[in-house]
Each structure stands twice: as structure tokens, then as C-alpha cells.
């Protein structure tokens, strides 16, 4: 079943998907960045993207990633695509 797609629920669910990868327990906010704060390498980010795509049955092309630096920006992109 596709989860509800309000911006808030999307944001909360993305935090859930990031949690297992957040090895240092960084506090997750709208402005937490994947490379800077979470220190994720490109492979980890791409695997996370695959999980996000599957969660909402959307396509989040890899060429969009440079514009998605923070958790909030990813939530915005998902909210736009998951309609």
C-alpha cells in the first residue's frame, strides 16, 4: 500500500529510511545534509534513493541528486513526484 503523501508524513518516513544509515546518530532536521552532516558516500546515497523510489513508487533520477543536498530538499522532491 502506498503511504499517505502529505509533506509531513513524507518527511517522517524519510527520517525512518535514513535512520539505519545514520551511524553517528546525527540529529535529523530539514537542513541536515547527506554528505556534510551524515557523511554519506555516493553509493550510500544512491542506495537510499532506491529505497525512497520504492517507498513511493516514483522515479528520482540520479542526475537530480546534486540539487538534493538536505533531507528537506528530498522531502520536497518526493512530495512533488508522489502524486
Amino acid at each position: 500500500m502506498t503511504p499517505p503523501t502529505t509533506r509531513d508524513t513524507i518527511f517522517a518516513r524519510i527520517l525512518g529510511l535514513i535512520a539505519p544509515l545514520n551511524k553517528k546518530g546525527v540529529a535529523l532536521t530539514e537542513t541536515t545534509s547527506f554528505s556534510g552532516d551524515l557523511e554519506m558516500d555516493s553509493l550510500t546515497v544512491m542506495d537510499l534513493v532506491a529505497n525512497i523510489e520504492d517507498e513511493w513508487d516514483i522515479v528520482l533520477p540520479l542526475n537530480m541528486l546534486p540539487e538534493l543536498e538536505t533531507v528537506g530538499q528530498v522531502a520536497d522532491a518526493v512530495a512533488r513526484l508522489a502524486k
Binding site: 544512491m46 523510489e53 520504492d54 513508487d57 516514483i58 522515479v59 533520477p61 540520479l62 542526475n63
Partner: peptide, 21 residues
């Protein structure tokens, strides 16, 4: 082009991602 990546050697994942395009 838009770049879509599927899980390594997974026929099922390839089919699923193609189906979204």
C-alpha cells in the same frame, strides 16, 4: 538523459524501474 539505477543483477528490480518510466 535522466539516469535510473537498478539493483545489481536484479531482473525484478530492472522490470520494476522500467515500469515506472
Amino acid at each position: 538523459a535522466d539516469i535510473v539505477r537498478f539493483r545489481h543483477n536484479s531482473v525484478e528490480d530492472l522490470a520494476k524501474r522500467l515500469g515506472r518510466l
